[in-house]
Design a protein around this nucleic acid. Sequence first.
DNA 1: AGAATGACAATGC
DNA 2: GGCATTGCCATTC
Length: 111
Amino acid sequence: MKEEYQRVFDAIAGIPPGRVASYGAIAARAGLPGRARLVGRLLGEVPDGMQLPWFRVLRSSGEIAMPAGSRGFREQCRLLRAEGVEVENGRVPLSRFGLDADVDRELWGLP
DNA sequence: AGAATGACAATGC
DNA sequence: GGCATTGCCATTC
């Protein structure tokens, strides 16, 4: 596995419970700005049951990035709600649960 | 090599 | 907020 991939996994694992982050944010946190798609590709190949909070990763708009109604979709909603995250119509209000620059700094100690 | 595809994103209307 | 465009990266045909 490439270094980059590992860093992405770390970044995802670094999302605190009850919070969500966008693909772009993860990529950036992993030191791979502009590689949001890479993140998405990795998550797609992560087997279910793997110890990774993949469900905390959403699109920049806050919506779940899979076909509504699909198995993974429901699973993601369930897991998120289990952590206290509001999921309304397959979407999460990033204004409250999303990691923004401020939280990011406080949490991960970025400059 | 060239084109299409995908759990994406930023910008402009 | 929706829709189209453009940029991106890795993989697969």
